[in-house]
Design a binder for these strands. Structure first.
Lengths: 213, 213
DNA sequence: TTCACTATTTATAAGCG
DNA sequence: TCGCTTATAAATAGTGA
């Protein structure tokens, strides 16, 4: 994008690729922060990778984080709005098709996942050095608990959130879901997985905006 | 950023804010796609919000998605590498502080969350129209299952992944975790949550790059 | 609201140290 | 590998249809 127009394809030269990655990563984070500020949206950006040993974060300042966290804690109040939209979608679905419903549910799910991500990253990243030792301990515990939950989901056992300590529960205001259940079918198999390169998720950006006025 | 330099603050005018959001959202998704292509990174971008009824996605084409998915399916092979790094981190932690450990665990957790997000969004969004009716049914079932899992995590009951149908399990290659457990303290309470504006996560970007050559 | 159209501001590919 | 600098490509604020 400067002396040359750059073709949209994998950059062959390893070094150049790394450099580009570093530069663009930075640019992306900046964009996220701007979008968040300008449009008053909840935003979170985490960018880490094997390329760059040190992750880039946003918000990168406690003051930036404050607004995001504050808004975030009020998320539960948003449930009604979500429900309403949910029902609207359900009506539309009557006219439409499966597709619409799936999309909506995915979106709902993504909202939840993002909720978790945000809380995890914000609590874990930013104010870490500002927390008291007790809080830090709780955080550690919380995080490990969450890890175990995931592990358990894998190995078969559920981990009740109610077992979390007070602070942890406060940090985990997981919005409730409530849409109707529907049916389904059974197992088809597409088997599309050979082995080429080992891959890791290295960059993660998460942005959320608020309904605004 | 054109006729005027734009101050980095919340855009007062609601309409202008929406417009800016829409434009910048688009730009952000484009940046993500470019980063993915140029640097050969796994990338996922989901941008949705109350502003814009319809989410923006990337990859937006099955061909784009293919590479990402393929790479993604090999993630389990990455576990060893992750473990190694994990241990490295653990060594550093001996010298360092709690902080480092928490960061690492958060990162691990983020990788997992991203895994799920990716699979959910990719499967749910792109090839939706290309799936057979059976597969579509499975997808529906899978998604609802996942929703229930989350619900259950909230209400106290765990949802075993092993109960998922074949296709679902294949789509859920949740990498295993394994880091040491640690201790900690109990409940402090910071109580910082009043109610101002109702907020929702509306945009979500997720990018992952591969170790590369 | 949503495009389309610039005038400008930004982001960056290449070079250089 | 980084950090800068510079020329050029891209993104986008303001505006009008």
């Amino acid at each position: 994008m400067s002396r040359k127009k750059v073709k949209l394809e994998l950059i062959a030269d390893e070094t150049a690729r790394r450099t580009t990655f570093r530069k663009r990563k930075k640019g992306l984070v900046k964009k996220v922060s701007e979008l968040s500020t300008l449009c008053g949206v909840n935003a979170l950006a985490i960018v880490y990778g094997p390329y760059d040993p040190n992750p880039d974060f946003w918000p990168s300042s406690p003051s930036d984080a404050k607004g995001v966290i504050t808004r975030f804690k009020n998320m539960s109040e948003m449930d009604q709005a979500k429900k309403m939209m949910n029902q609207q979608e359900f009506l539309r679905e009557r006219i439409g098709k499966f597709k619409d419903k799936l999309k909506w549910q995915l979106r709902e799910n993504q909202v939840l996942e993002t909720t978790k991500l945000m809380y995890e990253c914000l609590t874990g990243n930013k104010d870490l050095q500002d927390l008291s030792y007790e809080a830090l301990g709780d955080l550690t515990w919380l995080i490990e608990k969450r890890m175990k939950e995931i592990q358990n989901r894998i190995t078969d056992i559920g981990m009740p959130i109610s077992t979390l300590p007070p602070l942890a529960q406060q940090f985990m205001p997981m919005p409730k879901l409530d849409h109707e259940k529907k049916n389904n079918a059974d197992g088809d198999n597409d088997g599309q997985g050979s082995g080429r390169d080992k891959t890791a998720m290295e960059v993660l950006l998460s942005i959320g905006n608020q309904p605004s006025s």
